[in-house]
């Protein structure tokens, strides 16, 4: 983690922490991405939007090193993910946190044990200290304390997401990848999630890469929005620029009834502030 996150946040555009260059992804004869480019500067909360089937999840999986691209290069924290040696790749993976869509908690372990896994594997902490830190992460993620000794199957969907977030944050990562973090959450919980993300970004200088459908989230937390359509990143800029972008899907998305409502609410909120 950078010792001066404030400086990094205020000067984005230096070296991108995520750099995708000329990416092409194919499944059989179907091409999902073609010549896709995307740069994410440090300290930014990026929302990636796109219709169902435009390959948002595939792009995320490719960036974090789970699916080798057919063509193209992925750089994560300055390291070429697919050309790096195993040791280099593990070093990079230590510095990122991933929240999968359904949480992907290990079902045979309690919440605390789930969070202890990265803590015990990657640091020299004792079991007792790891448990204490895990307790802190649970509280940070906004999970009630009586959930810490429960198994994932005993938790509600929203609590599972929070537990998974606590695990993703266990090592204080520099980049946090989120796949649909607020889907399936009630609006109050989702808003709490957004607030938590922003606090963590401000406090830790996190970079957040977030696949989302949630217009409220986009308005509330995203500094930048990237639109995935026509097999590439159509536009990646601040929300105001993206909303004005001349493309039928973008216009439908942000100017549709849901988009207008969310936009109006946050415009009011900004004025009041």
């Amino acid at each position: 983690m950078s010792a001066t996150p404030a400086a990094a946040v205020s000067a984005p555009g230096a070296t991108p922490v995520i750099a995708v260059a000329d990416l092409t992804t194919r499944f059989g004869t179907q091409t999902v991405h073609e010549h896709l480019d995307l740069d994410v500067p440090r300290g930014v909360i990026l929302g990636v939007v796109g219709g169902s089937g435009t390959g948002k999840s595939v792009l995320l999986r490719t960036i974090i090193g789970l699916r080798r691209p057919d063509v193209g290069r992925i750089q994560l924290l300055g390291e070429d993910v697919y050309a790096a040696s195993t040791a280099q790749r593990i070093a990079v993976e230590r510095r990122i946190g991933v929240l999968f869509q359904d949480g992907a908690l290990f079902s045979s372990m309690t919440v605390t044990e789930n969070i202890c896994v990265p803590l015990r594997e990657h640091t020299a902490l004792s079991a007792r200290d790891a448990r204490r830190l895990a307790t802190l992460k649970i509280a940070l993620a906004g999970l009630p304390q009586d959930a810490r000794d429960k198994y994932p199957s005993e938790l509600s969907g929203g609590m599972r997401k929070r537990a998974a977030l606590a695990r993703a944050l266990a090592l204080d990562p520099e980049i946090l990848f989120l796949d649909e973090p607020t889907s399936g959450l009630d609006p109050i919980t989702a808003a709490g999630f957004d607030r938590l993300l922003r606090t963590l970004r401000d406090a830790l200088g996190l970079t957040v890469y977030m696949n989302t459908h949630d217009l409220d989230s986009i308005h509330a937390v995203c500094d930048r929005v990237a639109v995935l359509a026509d097999r590439r990143v159509l536009v990646a800029a601040d929300l105001a620029t993206v909303e004005r972008y001349d493309h039928p899907w973008v216009q439908d998305y942000f100017r549709g009834p849901r988009g207008r409502t969310a936009g109006a609410v946050y415009a009011d909120a900004v004025q009041e502030a």
Partner: peptide, 25 residues
């Protein structure tokens, strides 16, 4: 104090407060 340090300490402080309020069974 730098605002991001303050934010981090306050957020974590609240979390620790929650932990103290709920001792483990």
């Amino acid at each position: 104090l730098a605002p991001e340090r303050r934010a981090l300490l306050e957020t974590v402080g609240c979390a620790v407060h929650d932990i103290f309020a709920h001792p483990p069974p």
